[in-house]
Nucleic acid binder design. Structure first.
Length: 415
RNA sequence: GCGAUCGUAGCUCAAUUGGUUAGAGCGCCGGUUUGUGGUACCGGAGGUUGCGGGUUCAAUCCCCGUCGAUCGCCCCA
């Protein structure tokens, strides 16, 4: 007889219980609350899509597509991919459902995402994000609203301290191309002094040299031409409008001219809320304007802007939420009392009172569980109480105990 | 894909330069107390030291491999 080996969890997945689950839930609940304040409707999209949804939006040749997506064939031979981000799926839904009629569409969602990466601090293969998008508006006011939303979320989570909003503009298409060419010229001139990785980046993704961590690259990146030298007047005015909006709303920010996005469809605003409290994974919320994406999916030119935030990373930064606790724990003694207690438990819960009862155990055991559950009251029912139509209600905080008619227990434990 | 560190009870950790029966706290179960929790005391269950191989009279400890975890690099939509 061979021993059955327990299958292990997949690398980079997490199981959460207790405090971890509380933290996660608190982040999500706070997001749901704030998103309503800003008039963002809830949107639900599938966890998997045709691979083309993501490969078109990311560019077919990138490492990201070839190595870092969970892609597989279904039984019909179609290539499917577990979503590595929200934006592409929401954009696809926008097109295939005719949501243009709702433009500008303000939507928010949260849920699991999947990337085939080596796990490290704050980085998992199945991870979870909050997401907010405004699709169909080219106004800088949309960028401002999303940024103020993000800022309020971080404040309500209590993590704004030590988190800074770093902001940049990538300009319009002409700006971006001119800047890119100037950067390549600059780095090409210093090719010999760059790190091996950055020489490689030079041909693959030159903008990324700007945020290299290698000490050899940092002075060269610091001396690189900035986008401001190439900013068209329209793009400059757009950025100006965004920063004025932030000023008016009282949101603090700092300019990071080296904040970039690798993909061509990003235009204008790019931003990241960063902290130094999470090791190498300092970005807690990031996003920007992606005016070119929906066209890349075969749709009409559609301006859009959005952000996403890692739930796990936010959960690591917040203070531990207090466990919920319950109002009343029912402690029956004997079979007759259990029947009465089952009825009382149901009526308390139907009245909106959080109550619980152990499945089994003697009185001592049940009292211990009542205490451990954080209940404020224990409702003790034995044969004596049943005979009198009463229950003994014990205040577990103060230790005092009174007899209460069964139909008044709800009031007694609501104080 | 690469590098560093680490795998001992359900959890957090001990165990002398390699040494004979691998310990403690917490948790769990029971008792002191068959109708009263939190504090206290007593007892109990629970281990192939991740797995496989090697060196040795002897391996939790040293060596090799493998699996896993953590942190970092790469990447970051």
């Amino acid at each position: 007889m061979s021993k059955i080996t327990t299958p292990q969890a997949i690398r980079g997945t997490q199981d959460m219980l207790g405090e971890d689950a509380l933290r996660f839930g608190h982040v999500v609940e706070t997001f749901e609350h704030v998103r309503r304040l800003y008039g963002f409707g809830r949107v639900e999209v599938p966890v998997f899509e045709a691979t083309a949804v993501f490969s078109r939006s990311l560019g077919e040749t990138t490492d990201v597509v070839s190595k870092e997506m969970y892609t597989f064939e279904d039984r019909g031979g179609d290539s499917l991919t577990l979503r590595p981000e929200f934006t592409a799926g929401i954009s696809r839904a926008y097109l295939t459902n005719g949501w243009q009629q709702h433009a500008p569409l303000k939507v928010a969602t949260h849920g699991p995402l999947f990337r085939y990466e080596r796990p490290q601090k704050g980085r998992f293969r199945q991870f979870h994000q909050l997401d907010a998008e405004v699709i169909g508006s080219a106004e800088p006011a949309a960028d401002v609203e999303l940024l103020v939303f993000a800022d309020q979320l971080l404040h309500e989570l209590g993590v704004a301290e030590g988190v800074t909003l770093t902001l940049n503009t990538l300009g319009d298409q002409a700006t971006r191309e001119a800047w890119r060419e100037a950067l390549i010229r600059h780095f090409e001139a210093h090719r010999d002094a760059l790190s091996e990785e950055s020489v490689d980046r030079l041909s693959r993704n030159p903008l990324r040299i700007l945020d290299s961590k290698d000490p050899r690259d940092i002075p060269i990146a610091a001396a690189a031409p900035t986008i401001d030298d190439h900013l068209s007047s329209e793009a400059g005015a757009f950025f100006e409008a965004v920063t004025r909006g932030l000023q008016a709303a009282g949101v603090a920010w700092t300019r990071n001219p080296r904040l970039v996005r690798g993909l061509d469809y990003y235009r204008h605003t790019a931003f990241e809320f960063v902290t130094d409290r999470l090791g190498a994974q300092g970005t807690v919320l990031g996003g920007g304007r992606y005016d070119g994406l929906i066209e890349a999916l075969g749709g009409p030119a559609t301006p859009a802007v959005g952000w996403a935030a890692g739930i796990e990373r936010l959960a690591m930064l917040i203070d531990a939420p207090a466990p919920a606790g319950i109002q009343a724990a029912i402690v029956p003694m004997g079979a007759a009392a259990e029947a009465v207690a089952t009825g009382l438990l149901a009526s308390l819960r139907r009245a909106g009172i959080a109550a619980d009862m152990a499945y089994r155990g003697n009185m001592k055991r049940r009292m211990q569980k009542a205490d451990a559950s954080g209940a404020r009251f224990a409702v003790i029912i034995g044969d004596d109480e049943i005979a009198r139509g009463e229950a003994a209600v014990k205040n577990l905080v103060e230790g005092s105990q009174t007899m209460v008619p069964l139909d008044k227990v709800g009031e007694a434990v609501s104080r």
